[in-house]
Design a protein around this nucleic acid. Sequence first.
DNA 1: CTAAAGGTACGATGTTTTTCGTACGATACA
DNA 2: TGTATCGTACGAAAAACATCGTACCTTTAG
Lengths: 129, 129
Amino acid sequence: MKSNQTENNLPEPTKAELEILQVLWEFGPSTVRFVNDKLNEQREVNYTSTLKQMQILTEKGILKRDESQMKHIYIPVEAEEKTKVQLLDRFVNTLYRGSASQLMMQLLGNEKTSKQEIEEIKRLLDSME
Amino acid sequence: MKSNQTENNLPEPTKAELEILQVLWEFGPSTVRFVNDKLNEQREVNYTSTLKQMQILTEKGILKRDESQMKHIYIPVEAEEKTKVQLLDRFVNTLYRGSASQLMMQLLGNEKTSKQEIEEIKRLLDSME
DNA sequence: CTAAAGGTACGATGTTTTTCGTACGATACA
DNA sequence: TGTATCGTACGAAAAACATCGTACCTTTAG
């Protein structure tokens, strides 16, 4: 099958992979043990499952690791921002035909987006002038 | 495995399922034939593959269908808006811990979001006062 | 009437993603 | 110094997704 890459970039992380990335983004470079513990705060996962995922992530080039110690330390290759931008871009293209303003409208119309959030967005825009 | 539902809602559509939904959103209630033709404008898919997907979508309760004719007519159960809001909500929660303004910042910082888009967003916000 | 065209049903198969068991090496410490 | 603990490697099973072939029913045109 065709490999799933964007022009200049890494393959899209899967759902389980994203969970792991998020731990690494939040807490910085970590061991499998640490990541697995964090994941288990939310759902039950076997240690070796997490290990395997992180190995796969490394094969894919999404993570790299420091093997100088027995406890390998895993690190995302791309910065959080960059990866998120890619995902966001894909999301906008898929669901909103690339129209960021349409996405915005939905965000603003969404009850779950608080007044406070909206205010913050306005301030943000003003400061961009 | 745990079934994948949000509190009050339908299961998340998969990628292939989303493609189909998008055709239905754009063109309204349609036959399998019609949807399949649209999909084939973008990539090759066998008719029965599309049929199967749409049957699965129906089983899942994401589509319903009018069987009164031989050519069944498929219709999304939920409105486009509602489904997109769900997906967007999940997206914001997953990637931005629920912070819409953070997502915004990324949108605005994204080169692919044109000046024109940004202007439109500003106008939108102003008109909300 | 009948053959071709076009429809649905559905099992089987292929692929990708996810999870886990087992093997085995290193470390720690009683 | 041996045994329990904690690590990695890795194949394989399980689950989720996607695709397709085949059977079989309806409609339609000649």
